[in-house]
Design a protein around this nucleic acid. Structure first.
Lengths: 230, 230
DNA sequence: TGTAGTGGTTACATAAGCGTCACAAACCTG
DNA sequence: CAGGTTTGTGACGCTTATGTAACCACTACA
């Protein structure tokens, strides 16, 4: 199974017109597009073609989008594929449910096609670290490289340059454990001599900055190894 | 049970000709092949020989393939074994039901043997990562080296650095018996002086960590020789 | 030349993990 | 069964890794 050169997007949308608009724009953007008109077909295509990202309509006949999402996110091999949910509903409840099910992003119809494209790009960048990042996301934390800003939920977080780079490193590969030395390399620079304990201090500062209101600490200490996000 | 060097594939197919074609191709591909001609025999062989992957026909006398699948996927020790379902039916309903039952992949007859081989390889790669840095799996235990995490079923296990390295060593070669000296070399380091009995203590701690809720102990004590996983 | 913001280091407190021992239990061998 | 050996395991003291506050140094900028 050779890796496709072009990023591959699976569009699951029952309404033919909307599906084609999406597909057209995605193809114009340079993606390979797979189309599915219902949940079953979607699930099948995921197994067959391992797309890099999925744009998923909320309302689908039989197997609903949310159900498709749930199934994909509970299976280990498909859990990593980012899912962007589309929905006509704008109620808060559904947003929460959408993200709760494991969707990585959520867009309410009618959406700006440009915005959707941006989100697709963002999600892809998260998964395929080939190109440099604009927006990274992990759970409720968003990091925008361009504007140098970090959000948690709706709140804007305030963090210093070092903490920002530190967080950016973590968010490139959520879950991965970085040793203090690796972090010094990536965040401080290759030939800077700083005490490894300095990392600890900045981790502490990052933690404090990430949880201004007592949110759960997303950083994990791995004793004897280093730190990780999530 | 000596650790099989070759990946072991269990073929459950009642039609002799088809079974042999499959077996022939799998053996040509370098796998060890177990054959079963019905569901009961299949389930039996799973328990006896712990295959690495199962190719399972949908239509079987008595116990149907889907039933075999369901049973395996509900038992903790066998849940981790990937199952590829074969079916003559191509109806949407069945596809979905196949995946719903927990099958990891689904191939419709008549299939290209090349494609099937590719899928077997893909599933095996998922379960038996040959190289470092990927995720190791043994029965229902998964160890992810990169994120330094260990799961049993859905639960995340909490183990200390030494227990983690110990388990990683075992999972590299499930079934292999490691002497206390070998373990000290690999886990503690070549020129560390520690009592060999220390290994026993850490094995105990690892055991406790692996069975937080009274699951079956996957570690085997080989009297006079050492310890092994499975 | 203040002042505010940031960064690196140190020191100390605490938590986590480690290794050893001692005794109990299991096992083997006659 | 007796005697010896191997393994399981709780307890305990010790070491080490980590969290964190405090401090000083440096920079930028008005």
């Amino acid at each position: 199974m050779a890796a496709a050169e072009l990023p591959c997007v699976l569009v699951v949308e029952d309404e033919p017109a909307q599906r084609e608009v999406l597909a057209y724009n995605l193809e114009a953007e340079g993606y390979r597009v797979l189309r599915a008109e219902n949940g079953e077909e979607g699930l099948l295509l995921v197994n067959e073609s391992a797309p890099d990202i999925i744009v998923l309509d909320w309302m689908l006949p039989n197997v609903s989008g949310i159900e498709v999402c749930r199934r994909l996110k509970t299976r280990a091999e498909t859990r990593g594929i980012p899912i962007i949910m589309l929905s006509a509903r704008s109620e808060e409840v559904d947003r929460v449910r959408g993200l709760e099910t494991g969707a990585d992003d959520y867009v309410v119809k009618p959406y700006s096609i440009v915005e959707l494209m941006a989100r697709v790009r963002a999600q892809l960048r998260r998964v395929r670290p080939s190109s440099v990042g604009e927006t990274l996301q992990f759970s409720d934390i968003r990091l925008d490289a361009e504007s140098h800003r970090v959000f948690r939920g709706d709140a804007t977080l305030k963090l210093g340059p070092t903490e920002f780079r530190l967080l950016a490193t973590f968010m490139e590969k959520p879950g991965r454990v970085w040793s203090r030395e690796q972090l010094l390399d990536r965040v401080w620079g290759r030939d800077i001599y700083v005490d490894t304990r300095t990392v600890d201090v900045h981790i502490g500062r990052l933690r404090k900055a990430l949880c201004p209101n007592g949110e759960t600490d997303p950083l994990r200490t791995v004793r004897g190894a280093g730190y990780a996000l999530g």
